[in-house]
Design a protein around this nucleic acid. Sequence first.
DNA 1: CAGTGGTCTAGACCACACG
DNA 2: GTGTGGTCTAGACCACTGA
Lengths: 233, 233
Amino acid sequence: MSKDIHNRLEEIIAVAEPGERLLSEPKLAEQLGVSRATLREAMRTFETQGLLRRRQGVGTFVVRPTRVIESGLEVLESIETLADRIGLSVTMGELQISKCRLDNATAKLMQLSLDTEAICVSRVILAEGRPVAYLVDTLPGGYLSSEEMANEFTGSVLDLMLKRGTPLLESARSEIKAVAAKPDVSRALNIQRGDSVLLFESLLFTLEGLPIDYSLSYFLPGYFKFHVVRRVG
Amino acid sequence: MSKDIHNRLEEIIAVAEPGERLLSEPKLAEQLGVSRATLREAMRTFETQGLLRRRQGVGTFVVRPTRVIESGLEVLESIETLADRIGLSVTMGELQISKCRLDNATAKLMQLSLDTEAICVSRVILAEGRPVAYLVDTLPGGYLSSEEMANEFTGSVLDLMLKRGTPLLESARSEIKAVAAKPDVSRALNIQRGDSVLLFESLLFTLEGLPIDYSLSYFLPGYFKFHVVRRVG
DNA sequence: CAGTGGTCTAGACCACACG
DNA sequence: GTGTGGTCTAGACCACTGA
């Protein structure tokens, strides 16, 4: 029964020093008496918990997640703001900005026509060098200039607009999902395809009630704690 | 490249009639020109979207998810209440009630001593015969009698207490996570081990602010839509 | 270059459902 | 019993990293 493998792996991780490298997959699999596929399956849980970090061509390392980025969902704040508050430094990587076309569903959500020119911004947020979130924003053209993006953008469309003061923002409506990481997500977050990630699909509104930003935010579960208070009646 | 497989599977599902059975895994794998393992990997996404339903010993079936159970997170309501509102009938299965001991973390959360007698209630919620949620509640002993459970319990601890009127309930604090299904969860929800599910880890409080119920709620993503409004500043 | 993780394959055995 | 999905194995090849 490979529930054992899970427990034995847990033990191995528990006694390892932070930063320690595990045996290579073939060796570890042999030592545990299971196939490599089974071992990798068992590793999945610990990866999404942020306890293991795999690096292709290098090895698998034990990680001690530092502080967890915690947030109540009632307030809209960027990851950078949240991280700042607990004194955690985050950086941005793999920034890609491109003009893009809206697909049908997105156009409908944003109340735009299909031929609206739009800008897609994708990037990875790293905490202590580890990718922890993958964000993709889609905005109608005209809200972001290329100079602004080059000079001011630090990872958050929200922060940029708040700093700029225009347009005035009011709220975001987010849909919360759990999804299996597709190839683009698993690559960006450095996890296995099919691993579980938390996805916020959000629409950001201005004070006038205009949708101004459609975003997909993929979060590595182990590094974030989102909570919400739900009232009876 | 097995991204193709994903798309081809998508196409197969799209043109299939609801309720239609797919070819068996070995046959379908051969037809698509991939191994069974690869095919199963590709199937994962569609399972958690609720588009495929696998039944051991029977086959894999195409499902058209009917209505999605949608809820804002600000208000605490049971799945039964939400389903009722959209006219969807849900039933309860695999009810298990047992006395249990608190583990360390749970005891701390509930502000109880480790030797407190507690009751664990687990059950599966089915919508149209399909398991869509797996709920595990832990309560200190004394709140639920066995007669009540036998006669009144329809799947929701919340509804039972609200109906009874005591203790008076105020709110729940929920932590939202994405997790890979462990064996117990995958069995209960009829999905593959490691599939992504949405997990709410909640603590329910009385009007006096006493924690009275600790619950883990695992949701099959495709059948639920949770949303929340997040305000700026 | 050698060694790592990422992916895929072919085949096996099991537990289960149904006739 | 027969056929299904659930799980595991052994082995292969690739892409990537770092010396």
